[in-house]
């Protein structure tokens, strides 16, 4: 164990952590053959804009078609619905998965669209961590609203919030994400740029931003695709 290390025991003082960090970063600067850069580094103008240009010229209807097509490649069912029919669509879907238990996020849009699911549970900061996790683990269906959907990759993007926990997307066997048509953007570029802007404007982001593209899967056994590993076995998007 080195001196630098014993100084930076997790319970050690901040000053000692600081000194270890300074030594480490100064060493990097010397490896780079120049004085330490503490500030003033700007991102250069990137030489290409391919990420910005890809699919940028598509209108909303075209993006929806791209999203639907991509979902056929990622084992994800897409159901088109409307705000009026949404309750019915979700009820039918849940029934097709063998019914509840259902756990949903506490998103205000559930109330806005007048949705209710008898006997469901809601991810809630009022309940303990253990209770929320236990309910999510017991749930057959998870129900959430996407912040954004990415047409190119068939992805829903969601941010963690007090009323929308991280494990909710992973523990239940079936995952249903409701996508509002106007939240569909061409690709990951636009969604990440939006979070980047919000962060730059001083807004506090949740501890977690999830980009979820279909159900969990693995090809670790003989490169053969198995859908449904640690996360959901099935994923469904409902477009409204």
């Amino acid at each position: 164990m080195t001196t630098a290390f014993s100084h930076s025991d997790p319970s050690g003082s901040n000053a000692q952590d600081r000194s270890n960090r300074e030594t480490f970063l100064n060493h990097i600067a010397s490896s780079l053959g120049r004085p330490r850069k503490m500030d003033g580094v700007q991102r250069p103008a990137w030489k290409h804009t391919v990420h910005l240009d890809t699919l940028a010229d598509r209108n909303q209807d075209e993006l929806i078609e791209i999203l639907k097509e991509q979902c056929t490649f990622i084992h994800t069912q897409v159901i088109e619905s409307t705000p009026e029919r949404l309750q019915r669509t979700l009820d039918d879907l849940i029934a097709s998965f063998g019914g509840g238990p259902v756990m949903r996020s506490g998103d205000s849009r559930f109330a806005e669209y007048g949705l209710s699911f008898p006997g469901d549970s809601v991810w809630s900061p009022e309940a303990s961590r253990e209770d929320n996790v236990r309910l999510a683990e017991a749930a057959n269906v998870a129900l959430v609203f996407a912040d954004y959907a990415l047409a190119e990759s068939g992805t829903v993007v969601l941010e963690s919030r007090p009323d929308q926990g991280r494990a909710l997307h992973f523990l239940p066997a079936h995952y249903i994400a409701v996508i509002q048509r106007d939240s569909i953007v061409p690709r990951s570029t636009q969604a990440m740029a939006a979070y980047h802007r919000r962060h730059g404007a001083g807004e506090a982001l949740g501890s977690c931003i999830n980009m979820i593209s279909g159900p969990s899967n693995s090809a670790d056994i003989e490169m053969q695709l198995v859908v449904g590993v640690h996360g959901p076995l099935q994923a469904t998007y409902v477009l409204i």
Partner: peptide, 27 residues
């Protein structure tokens, strides 16, 4: 793996105020 994006791409850090799960202690 030839995927446009993999199933789960996550940006994560310590649990934030008011949140229920995620790490209370993050190293």
């Amino acid at each position: 793996v030839g995927q446009k994006l993999t199933s789960y791409i996550t940006v994560m850090g310590p649990r934030q105020a008011g949140e229920v799960d995620g790490p209370e202690e993050f190293h």
